[in-house]
């Protein structure tokens, strides 16, 4: 797995000379490494990975973000999961609202109601968002989206210009309400006898039917044990319910088995699993779910060239947004074609 590199050791001794000079120059008291293992990291190497931002603004790049520019970006890249107004779709995080709910039975923790620092928003969007295509936004786009999410939370005005300095100066509503862990905060004693009044014990049972226990409880009507199966189960129940309302019997739609798939589609299965399934496996963000014949019928009718064009170049439809190549610009057009074939053939 690991090759020995003579040239690297040579480079190391050259670097050691440079290091000695640097230490002499700064007058540092730090000792040279005891083992002398590892190369000195260059500024360029560090710069490419050093993406973190701190509340005091340390780490923020140059740039100016505006609410206006952020709005369209947000709607294109974020709203499918987080909702047009930051209200959250399905179980995806709610970004806005929730002020004054932190003491309630069901608090809504959002950027505006809970987050102590605005810098966290820039940092997180830059390191991990959008969920299906992390590190795909430019620093500028991150500024714009950050501005828009702050605007959705009524933390900045519409004309606020977000910069390195202005971002660090924003005071978040909940900033002063965090304190360092005071635990241990409770003190139990090791009592051995008469530790409680048996007459006063209140016993509350488990809410049944919400944990997947089919593996050891016969006949348990619990949610299925995987996210896919859970989604499938919920969809099937919904279809059955609608069918009952109409007085119909539900015909089950089996998805195409591997035997009936074309060579092109079979070749696309791996790409689908690795890149497309995150949305198309569950119907996330309004995408047509693989195997959902109704959802695909209209799309398939348009013909493969149009479907493929939308998949490669991106498309905004009635139910959601398909980013170019689903955000995976590293995929070749051929791979996308194969994956689309797989999805189409599995959904008719």
């Amino acid at each position: 797995m690991f090759k020995s590199l003579d040239s690297k050791q040579m480079k190391k001794s050259l670097l050691a000379i440079g290091l000695g000079a640097a230490l002499a120059f700064t007058g540092s008291i730090a000792q040279a490494g005891k083992y002398g293992i590892g190369d000195t990291a260059t500024k360029d190497q560090i710069a490419g990975w050093d993406i973190d931002i701190r509340p005091d603004g340390k780490g923020l790049p140059a740039g100016e973000g505006t609410v206006e520019a952020g709005e369209s970006l947000y709607e294109e890249r974020c709203a499918t999961c987080h909702g047009l107004f930051g209200e959250g779709e399905g179980r995806w995080p709610v970004l806005a609202g929730g002020e004054g709910t932190l003491t309630e039975e069901r608090p809504t923790k959002t950027v505006g109601s809970y987050w102590p620092y605005a810098s966290t928003l820039y940092d997180y969007i830059r390191r991990a968002m959008p969920f299906t295509a992390p590190r795909s936004l430019s620093d500028q786009q991150v500024y714009d989206i950050t501005a828009y999410v702050l605007y959705l939370n009524e933390i900045i005005e519409e004309d606020f210009v977000l910069t390195k300095d202005s971002l660090a100066s924003i005071e978040m509503p909940n900033q002063d309400n965090f304190f360092v862990d005071p635990r241990p905060d409770v003190k139990n004693v090791r009592c051995m006898k008469n530790c409680a009044d048996p007459k006063k014990l209140k016993i509350a049972g488990t809410l049944r039917g919400i944990t997947p226990v089919g593996h050891f409880v016969e006949g348990a009507d619990a949610p299925a044990a995987s996210h896919d199966a859970q989604m499938e189960q919920e969809q099937h129940k919904e279809k059955a319910r609608k069918a009952t309302l109409k007085g119909e019997t539900l015909t089950s739609h089996g998805s195409a088995g591997a035997a009936s798939l074309s060579e092109m589609a079979l070749a696309g299965k791996a790409t689908y699993e690795g890149a497309c399934k995150v949305c198309h496996g569950s119907g996330l963000t309004g995408s047509p779910k693989v195997g959902d014949i109704d959802a695909w019928a209209g799309r398939i009718k348009q013909g493969m060239p149009i479907l493929l064009d939308h998949a490669i170049k991106g498309f905004s439809g009635d139910t959601g947004v398909m980013p170019p190549k689903g955000g995976r610009v590293d995929l070749s057009d051929k791979q996308v074609e194969q994956a689309v074939s797989y999805m189409v053939e599995s959904s008719q």
């Binding site: 999961c81 399905g90 179980r91 995806w92 969920f131 919400i210 944990t211 997947p212 593996h215 949610p223 299925a224 044990a225 995987s226 996210h227 896919d228 199966a229 859970q230 995150v278 569950s282 996330l284």
Partner: peptide, 13 residues
């Protein structure tokens, strides 16, 4: 095993 309703997706779960 997982409890699917805990999270929105199996990728962040």
């Amino acid at each position: 095993r997982t409890v699917p309703w805990l999270t929105a997706d199996s990728i962040a779960s």
